[in-house]
């Protein structure tokens, strides 16, 4: 196994609200190795976005880091100085956001934005512009030199997202965070973007943290997957392990509910009954207990995230039963 680029250990993040502390992330632990694509899956509100903002430390003022560490190349990002973290943003860690219609400054031409983003480089402007054109070509924008003069509104959504990817990759980052980059796009574009990301990842050799709630995309793109539920990691492992042999009931239900997974025409799409627990008033025991069909007495205590195989881990007592038998 190659060495770890980003290590997250027991990360706990709270939001201070009028109703009390909202426990947005609890004991998040996972690694991203160099050159690896890791996917994070989970329904809305499970803490995916909080996790990203914690990694970049672009946090809301009411965010509190209660415990844990985020280490990037061995350095703790949570205790690093603001200066240090800003020098990492956009050079070693870049991000592609969800909505391509919003991520570009509407009154500055794409070319000028791509030149501006290289503000750390001392190269002359013409050189920066040439590099910008090269990057546009790399993400498959035709006639890049002419298109540099155009404004964001003159591009389609798919193109804008590809431009966003080009901009994120300009600094040749070690880690690219992709926050649901295909959610706002239609299915054909989604495939395009995924293919593009895959190829670019091979060329640039960066690691990618890919966040999505589309299981198919994760399966297509990622090496490993982390399944999150209500602010906690419930299962992690290689894509093959998690999708073919899920060890947590939530992962199982999630896969069953994926529209791509349903073979026959169903009158009602399958769902997971119940609701995500209130993060301000967490129930005791396993967080998935109320919605779990296999809940048992033992689930009143919190199951630890335990190794199932060398790479797969899950937080469910059921796996302990199997081990005992």
């Amino acid at each position: 196994m190659s060495d770890a680029l980003l290590e997250i250990d027991n990360l706990c993040v709270d939001y201070e609200t009028a109703r009390g502390d909202l426990k947005a992330l609890r004991d998040i632990t996972f690694n991203i190795n160099k050159g690896e694509i890791v996917g994070i899956v989970g329904e809305s509100g499970c803490g995916k976005s909080t996790l990203i903002s914690a990694i970049l430390r672009l946090i809301a003022p009411n965010t509190r880091f209660r415990n844990g560490e985020i280490r990037f190349k061995g350095e703790d990002l949570l205790t690093a100085s603001e200066e240090k973290i800003r020098s990492l943003r956009g050079s070693d860690i870049s991000i592609v956001f969800q909505d391509p219609m919003q991520t570009h400054n509407p009154v500055i031409s794409i070319g000028n934005q791509m030149v501006d983003i290289q503000h750390r480089s001392k190269a002359p402007k013409a050189e920066k512009r040439a590099y910008a054109a090269k990057m546009l070509a790399a993400v498959g924008i035709p006639d890049p030199d002419a298109r540099l003069n155009q404004y964001p509104h003159e591009f389609s959504g798919g193109m804008r997202q590809r431009i966003a990817i080009a901009m994120a990759l300009m600094s040749e980052p070690d880690l690219l965070i992709a926050d649901e980059p295909t959610t706002a796009l239609d299915a054909t574009l989604e495939v395009q973007i995924i293919e593009r990301l895959k190829n670019l990842q091979k060329d640039f050799g960066c690691s990618i943290l890919f966040i999505s709630h589309h299981l198919g995309v994760i399966a297509e793109l990622c090496d490993r997957v982390v399944v999150m539920y209500a602010g906690a990691v419930v299962e992690s492992g290689t894509v093959r392990e998690v999708f073919h042999n899920p060890k947590h009931p939530y992962t199982k239900r999630l896969i069953e509910c994926d529209p791509g997974h349903i073979k026959e025409r169903a009158r009602v799409l399958p769902t997971i009954p119940g609701e995500v627990p209130d993060l301000a008033n967490l129930p005791s025991g396993c967080i998935f207990r109320d919605r779990c069909l296999q809940a048992m007495d033992r689930c009143t205590s919190v199951p630890p995230l335990t190794d199932i195989t060398e790479s797969q881990r899950a937080a469910c007592w059921l796996n302990h039963m199997e081990a005992a038998e």
């Binding site: 672009l58 800003r86 990492l88 943003r89 956009g90 991000i95 956001f97 966003a164």
Partner: peptide, 8 residues
Amino acid sequence: LAERSMGA
């Protein structure tokens, strides 16, 4: 936000 996340 994108600009900030790029270290501006």
